[in-house]
């Protein structure tokens, strides 16, 4: 069992001596937490896994009421069925995703040394399918949403434990995601950081802007605006569109690197997907 960045951080001074390659990500993680602690002194860091609902008591109550009959439940049920279905060559998702499946969400994303790229759960599922002779699913389609919803549900309460291994390519992927996060995009000229750090907690019209901490813990999400359960990368596309940028492809290298960077920041937090958002 490896030690997550968050736990390593807790070990204090030892970090600086033993983890030079990972110094930058750990500094990012510490700085991010310190930033939100100062900005929201009354809100526990762990509470940010609920996004905007951690910041607004009134909206939180409405949201909790919705949890009595969560709209993502259909996706979980469909995903459970899909998980049990044999693949084209007779193998199962467990054969491909490992013995712990479906409790595997906490292992993603990770840096895949074979491909030299970030591996997400969605990409891993499609890789399983293609290797078994099945067609890859649409990354924005209902099957992928359902299976990932089931896996997320089964993986609830596991801790996020994203590792940046001692491999310059892994650090490069992380840095690329970090650059994406801080880069202004679109005609409206916003970086992710402008809404989720500079303006975090403020209202855009009637909606509160959520913290980056916890952004990746609760996917896929049933979004009332979408009227269906969808993946994190669909939200990336939406964010890019909202600032009037041309969105990238779901599971593109840049979006996977962004997911890598964001997920690392949430190390040590518990998984709480799927979730409902407005």
């Amino acid at each position: 069992m490896f030690v997550s960045g968050w736990r390593r951080l807790a070990l204090g001074g030892v970090v600086a001596l033993t983890a030079q390659v990972n110094a930058a990500p750990e500094d990012d993680l510490a700085a991010l937490r310190s930033f939100y602690e100062k900005r929201f002194p009354d809100i526990a860091l762990e509470a940010h896994i609920d996004g905007a609902y951690a910041l607004d008591e009134g909206k939180r109550e409405q949201w909790l009421e919705m949890e009595d009959f969560p709209p993502y439940e259909i996706a979980i049920d469909e995903g459970a069925e899909l998980f049990e279905e044999a693949l084209a060559d007779g193998s199962s998702y467990s054969d491909c995703l490992g013995d712990d499946a479906p409790v595997v969400k906490q292992n993603y994303p990770y840096f895949d040394e074979t491909t030299g790229q970030v591996m997400t759960l969605d990409l891993a599922i499609n890789n399983c399918r293609v290797a078994a002779g099945d067609e890859a699913w649409d990354y924005l389609g209902p099957e992928m949403a359902a299976l990932t919803a089931f896996i997320a549900y089964e993986s609830r309460d596991e801790e996020v434990a994203v590792e940046i291994p001692d491999d310059p390519r892994a650090l490069a992927a992380y840095e690329d995601g970090k650059a994406f996060y801080y880069t202004r995009r679109g005609q409206l000229n916003f970086a992710c950081s402008h809404c989720h750090m500079t303006m975090v907690g403020n209202k855009l019209r009637a909606e509160r802007l959520s913290a980056t901490l916890g952004h990746t813990t609760h996917w896929p999400v049933y979004r009332l605006k979408w009227k269906e359960t969808g993946p994190l990368h669909r939200r990336f596309m939406e964010c890019n569109s909202q600032v009037r940028g041309v969105p990238l492809e779901p599971q593109s290298v840049s979006y996977r690197n962004l997911e890598y960077f964001l997920s690392y920041q949430s190390n040590g937090l518990v998984l709480n997907g799927p979730a409902t958002r407005k």
Partner: peptide
């Protein structure tokens, strides 16, 4: 403008 700025007569204005 009211996405971030309050103004007299603006409905559901933001506060960024």
């Amino acid at each position: 403008c009211f996405s971030c700025h309050m103004a007299e007569g603006a409905e559901m204005a933001g506060n960024g």
